[in-house]
Nucleic acid binder design. Structure first.
Lengths: 317, 317
DNA sequence: AGGTTTAGTGCAACTGTTTGCAGTCTTGAA
DNA sequence: TTCAAGACTGCAAACAGTTGCACTAAACCT
């Protein structure tokens, strides 16, 4: 029923090894034979069996991608780009989701290990110890986490945060609130130190907060009390929640207070006012991670972020 | 380096077939031997090689999932659920994206075919002919498309649309606009016929429109001209765009006109006003599709939709 | 006691490809 | 004309498992 390399060999009068070579090392076979084999293969509808190939070569041409939550709007563009890049290079991509549990990461990598040539881990929560253990099992690249010895792609949030605060300063804001993320978050720390570096504005840090819409909503009161006219939120979800919360308190955005988010997720673009935000190069990160994996290079890359100015920022009253 | 079934066999003094059986048919091996083999395997860090297993059994324990656009907010919850279900049943899930091109579907299934036990196709755009051709290659189940002979999971948009219009009618709206989707869309037709069945309201169909925010935005003018006080949009993106467009024309939602969307995507929940919408059971659909695939049953299922009432609907002036 | 079932295990063939090695046949150079 | 060097191609042994069949020994019947 399923047509194998042997069928093709028989039908085209050559040995299986020749058929094999016309697919995996075409230059080693005579042009005439090659086209003959190719046409016969086409007629018979032959497709190489990747499992068999994997068995001998040890390479599966599969990659794994592990993220915290597929449904979190931050990830889909990254997944999409990674998938596209993989496919273009004739790889297939397994996607898995830890549901925000650190333990699941290790378990997933284990499960993947015999089945992929490498895995990309997005913002892994596992300890360094655990990650080193995994490195022994399967090559991987991490996104958004510093980890020496491993291939890494970072997005330079710090730079983006600085741009954001400078943007606010440029509009004339002198008191800027930073609605921070969860305690212990690398990103949150990065944002804070960058924001503090900007001259000419007084920075009030509010937090820690949950990295969600509710977190932003809940922070609205303290933002008002702070007297800030501009605010940088930990991410777009927080920004959206904050704008909502400020609205409840009778403060309009951007008339009364300017808000800038981070991430540039779809809901921010659809929000009213459209969110001014720091765009994270998630697609580029996904692509790059896949490339690094396939080419087996260990490098640390830092991707530029940029500020997208939309409607949630304006000069202060 | 990599530990195989033979290593385990040698170390535990049994034949490879016994080791094989302790993993794939535990009941066929004596309890004592089984535990011995198991502990030895554990010590050696043995993991069955899925490629080799796939080669002999013909089953890969992999599934494919093909959607139009991973980054479209409609899909991630479905992908997430499908992935979780697959993993729970010891399957891995390839995710791929056609980027909205019908041709890519067939190509992708081809590419997957030797590598998966089945694939789930979400709202496939390919012709019936093409799909039948694919059915010969690999088992599949389709989501959101009627296709006789294939396992199918449908979401009953029609019912949801009816509920939506009834909701508007119940609030007192007598003139309701339907901002339809693209011409030739099954969903759009379904929505329309269901909406027309509701008594007591006059339905004005506006469209076809692009199924995007811009499509909704562009339709705002015609909605105003129609004199409708309530509108059912083709989906949440259209609804969000429409609300924006109505705002530009000086019409507030829900004060001046009520809007209900379809899909219940995240951006709708975060919108202001929060969108009243027809919730599609995408997660359930994803789970069910992989179940059907794994159990190899050919069934046609129709999943209930429900109306989620939030802030974009109110009684007319 | 003798025959039959049953549980547990070993044997070896098989899955579809790759690849190092060896052989054949041209070609080109000396 | 002879020899070396390529260019192709065939051979057969892996790769890491699964599984039908045969075999042994113990347990179960009459």
């Amino acid at each position: 029923m399923t047509v194998t390399i042997r069928d093709v060999a028989r039908a085209s009068g050559v040995h299986v090894s020749t058929v094999s070579r016309t697919f995996s090392a075409p230059h080693m076979v005579n042009a005439a034979t090659r086209t003959r084999v190719l046409t016969v293969a086409e007629e018979l509808g032959y497709r190489p069996n990747r499992a068999a190939r994997a068995l001998t070569t040890g390479r599966t041409h599969n990659l794994g991608l592990i993220v915290a939550d597929i449904a979190n709007p931050f990830f889909p563009p990254l997944i999409k780009a990674a998938q596209a890049e993989a496919r273009q290079r004739d790889y297939h991509l397994f996607v898995a989701d830890t549901d925000e549990e650190a333990g699941a990461e290790e378990e997933l990598v284990q499960a993947f290990s015999k089945q992929v040539d490498g895995v990309v881990l997005c913002s892994p929560r596992s300890s360094n110890k655990a990650l080193e253990r995994l490195a022994a099992r399967v090559p991987f690249v991490v996104i958004n986490r510093r980890l020496r010895g491993a291939a890494t792609v970072l997005m330079d949030v710090g730079h983006g945060a600085r741009l954001a605060v400078e943007h606010l300063a440029g509009l004339g804001h002198r008191r800027v609130a930073l609605v921070a993320g969860p305690a212990g978050s690398w990103t949150s720390a990065e944002i804070r130190t960058a924001a503090e570096e900007v001259d000419g504005v007084e920075l009030i840090v509010i937090g820690p907060n949950a990295p969600t819409e509710r977190g932003g909503f809940a922070a609205a009161g303290r933002v008002r009390e702070s007297g800030a006219t501009g605010v940088l939120a930990y991410n777009d979800l927080v920004a959206i929640g904050l704008i909502d919360g400020l609205g409840e308190l009778g403060l309009g955005v951007p008339e009364d207070v300017s808000v800038v988010g981070i991430d540039d997720i779809v809901p921010g673009r659809l929000n009213r006012p459209k969110l001014t935000t720091v765009a994270m190069p998630t697609a580029a990160a996904g692509r790059l991670a896949v490339d690094l994996l396939i080419q087996e290079v260990t490098a640390t890359t830092s991707l530029e972020t940029r500020l997208v100015i939309r409607d949630s920022t304006a000069p202060p009253r």
